[in-house]
Design a protein around this nucleic acid. Structure first.
Length: 317
DNA sequence: AACTTTTTCAACCGCGCAGGA
DNA sequence: ATCCTGCGCGGTTGAAAAAGT
């Protein structure tokens, strides 16, 4: 990464430096925080401690130097679930979502989400050319039993994390994931949340159209709402095992299935999908309906969905 | 081994809000 | 009431690293 060209700073202050931080700069910043706390960012430059803007200093602290950060570890299954659920409820309120994830920053969450979106979009795009829009209702792939999801399709209620919840799933199996503990400890930090895990107050989760949900369309009145318990691991892993499946998993992040989409829930998955990228197979990357941007579903000719609303989240905002 | 593609992550930018003058 | 300043947030960019061919 080459340093990006800086602009001249104003007045007598040294030119603003941009680009990667050096260890020396980090040290200066840390010292400042030690002495003054994580504030007065602007004074760092005005005092000539660093040729960095206050914003830059704050960002560096928040994203890299804070002592409580989880660095270098991928999002766990639990964290993924939290992000996905909260994104569906809050929209792209990354900072807010990050408060539910100890050791994660808004930048982490943002990056995680956008990576996911890109990956999923790419996967679907790779698959789309096989079918042209229009005309072929229900003909996703005649050689497969899968059906196109429609907004009314109850299958959509099977969208992972939302419809697959079963009370019986809570087996503690997932407790092997360290994030559980993390979330528990965080619960105390999130006053607006209830006690269990991150447990936000019951908020209607969108249970249809991953398309909408994926865009933080919390204000888009869900056609059906399910007040899910927001249980620590409502991945229905147990149920998962009994359903066949397209178990979408990110093997790197989670050794266990995250969720399952029974046949027919998704779309005609054929070899192309597999070829397109490690998906749709028990060892595939995490793919969930509600991850997908609406445009991803254009191809399915879903009824027109309202534009992604601003995340007016009733009980969480 | 070399090259290409994809993913990850650090950092910047612009905007909006809040608080103080 | 208005302006200014600092801060925080969300979106975006681009380099480095990893994975794939």
């Amino acid at each position: 990464m080459k340093p990006r060209g800086g602009r001249g700073g104003g007045g007598e202050q040294p030119a603003v430096r941009k680009g990667p931080w050096t260890a020396e700069e980090d040290e200066v910043l840390l010292r400042h925080v030690r002495e003054h706390g994580p504030r007065e960012w602007s004074s760092i430059r005005s005092k000539g401690l660093l040729p960095r803007t206050g914003k830059s200093c704050r960002l560096r602290w928040v994203n890299k130097l804070r002592p409580d950060l989880k660095t270098g570890c991928k999002f766990s299954a639990e964290e993924e679930r939290v992000v996905i659920d909260l994104q569906a409820q809050l929209g792209n309120k990354w900072a807010r979502i990050a408060t539910y994830l100890p050791g994660r920053t808004d930048n982490d969450v943002k990056n995680f989400w956008s990576t996911r979106q890109k990956r999923l979009a790419r996967l679907l795009r790779a698959a789309v050319p096989r079918r042209r829009p229009g005309k072929q209702s229900g003909s996703v792939s005649s050689s497969h039993a899968y059906e196109l999801p429609t907004q009314k399709d109850p299958c959509l209620d099977m969208i992972p994390f939302q419809g697959t919840t079963t009370p019986a799933h809570h087996t503690g199996e997932s407790s092997s994931h360290e994030p559980r503990a993390a979330n528990q400890h965080r619960a105390a930090d999130a006053p607006s949340l209830g006690a269990h895990s991150l447990t936000p107050p019951p908020v209607p989760l969108l249970t249809h159209g991953g398309a909408g949900a994926g865009h933080g369309s919390s204000s888009a009145a869900p056609t059906s709402t399910a007040l899910l318990p927001f249980d620590g691991d409502y991945y229905a892993r147990d149920a998962v095992a009994s359903v066949d499946p397209l178990v979408f998993v990110d093997p790197a992040a989670c050794p266990e299935p995250l969720a399952v989409v029974p046949p027919g829930t998704f779309f005609g998955l054929d070899d192309d999908y597999v070829h397109a990228g490690r998906v749709l197979h028990p060892d595939a990357s995490g793919v969930r309906f509600d991850d997908l941007p609406p445009e991803t579903f254009d191809f399915f000719e879903l009824p027109h969905l309202p534009p992604s609303p601003s995340p007016t989240v009733g009980s969480l905002s």
